[in-house]
């Protein structure tokens, strides 16, 4: 059994093999490895006995279920209205410069992926972003630098 088969096995053990378990299983894999690739989807399809196309259709619908390889830390910066008003562009630029990647890319060492997302429900404390599940608010370029230093040093 490969690692991913083991994981799918554990997840079906936990959530069951009905169709309604599909989302928790996809999320379980995201939690473990940040994205769900094609091989993973075939394993899920087999475990739930549904078509792989169906798994793909569902996974691609949700923006927190990524198909492409993601870094260890997925940064999602809010691009919705109030964050934009509060200077999201500056923050994005700071992140791009700090990480030396463009939006949508992953650093060479596979540590960080930089994405945009819609409103995080942190509009009163924007600009905001998530790193994996952790929210960061009232961002400034300096704060971004500090946060990334912490992640680089694995303080987090």
């Amino acid at each position: 059994m490969t690692k991913i088969e083991q994981l799918v096995n554990d997840l079906t053990g936990k959530y069951g093999k009905e169709r309604k378990s599909l989302m928790p299983i996809l999320q379980g894999i995201v939690k473990e490895k940040r994205y769900v690739d094609n091989t993973d989807m075939v394993h899920i399809a087999r475990a739930l006995d549904i078509s792989a196309a169906d798994v793909y259709g569902v996974a691609s619908f949700y923006s927190f279920i990524e198909n492409n390889e993601m870094g260890k830390y997925v940064i999602r910066i809010c691009k919705s209205i109030t964050c934009e008003m509060k200077g999201k562009h500056k923050i994005l630029k700071a992140l791009e410069e700090e990480l030396r990647i463009k939006l949508g890319e992953t650093t060479h060492n596979k540590r960080f992926t930089l994405l945009e997302t819609n409103c995080l429900g942190l509009c009163d404390v924007g600009p905001a972003m998530l790193i994996n599940e952790e929210p960061y608010t009232k961002l400034t370029p300096e704060k971004v630098h500090e946060i990334l230093v912490d992640y680089r040093n694995e303080v987090k």
Binding site: S80, T82, G121, C123
Partner: peptide
């Protein structure tokens, strides 16, 4: 998920 809404949080 509505941009500008965070009261439920």
């Amino acid at each position: 998920g509505e941009p500008g809404t965070f009261k439920d949080r």
